[in-house]
């Protein structure tokens, strides 16, 4: 994977988001305190915010000028944003239309079995527990066959016990789908468990890049 985020400039209320970085590792954490601009960066990449300038390229595909719906970027926001009026099945199929290849790794059967959500598909979204909602939101993003998966603090709303339960699922996604991922978090434990590389972010800027297993980034 080669994700180039060049000349990204987005004025925010307290500071400007200014990013110029190339991401080459499989799972990259964007690590930093709350309010550092991590979510804004993901939103720019997903096409949900219009920056003043940006050149975003994933391998040989330029994404900056495409609208969000044509970028094929799976985005799981912090609040999950499951559609409350649709069943779990309808949520999962929302982005799945037109991808019918049974051998596809992003097939319905494969994704739902990896995340072990098959027993949930006929339930309503409001009937799910926090951890179940989490898995359904990730599955919904995967079923749209994305080129890149953006996870915005996916475990922040879960208690420590539930976190331990969900981390293995995220590891399975990483290993099964071989999908490049940007993983926003401010939890060191999650970074060490899941990521290859860490981009440390502060006040809208990437201030350091380190391998996830190094000890340097955690003291910043």
């Amino acid at each position: 994977m080669n994700l180039r985020l060049q000349k990204i400039l987005l004025p925010l209320s307290a500071f400007d988001l200014e990013v110029d970085v190339t991401v080459q590792r499989h799972v990259t954490a964007i690590f930093g305190p709350s309010g550092a601009g991590k979510t804004s960066l993901l939103e720019v990449i997903a096409g949900l915010r219009r920056p003043k300038s940006a050149h975003i390229q994933l391998d040989d595909k330029a994404l900056s000028n495409l609208p969000a719906r044509h970028r094929r970027i799976g985005y799981v926001p912090q609040d999950l944003a499951l559609f409350p009026h649709l069943s779990v099945r309808q949520n999962l199929f929302y982005g799945h239309k037109g991808i019918s290849d049974a051998d596809n790794i992003f097939s319905f059967d494969h994704v739902t079995s990896v995340l072990e959500i098959q027993p949930l598909v006929d339930r309503g979204v409001s009937d799910l527990s926090g951890g179940e909602k989490q898995r359904v939101a990730v599955a919904r993003a995967l079923l749209s066959a994305p080129r890149l998966l953006l996870l915005d603090e996916p475990l922040s709303s879960l208690d420590a016990k539930l976190k331990l339960k969900i981390i293995p699922y995220l590891k399975r996604i990483r290993d099964e789908f071989q999908l490049p991922m940007l993983y926003v978090t401010h939890d060191e434990e999650e970074v060490r468990a899941l990521c290859d590389e860490v981009l440390v972010m502060k006040e809208g800027k990437i201030i350091a890049t380190h391998p996830a297993d190094s000890t340097q980034w955690s003291v910043l």
């Binding site: 997903a46 096409g47 949900l48 609208p67 969000a68 719906r69 044509h70 970028r71 094929r72 970027i73 799976g74 985005y75 926001p77 609040d79 944003a81 559609f83 409350p84 929302y94 982005g95 239309k97 919904r140 993003a141 749209s144």
Partner: peptide
Amino acid sequence: RLEQIARTLG
């Protein structure tokens, strides 16, 4: 937010 996420799903 729900509308935005729907757009990212194509």
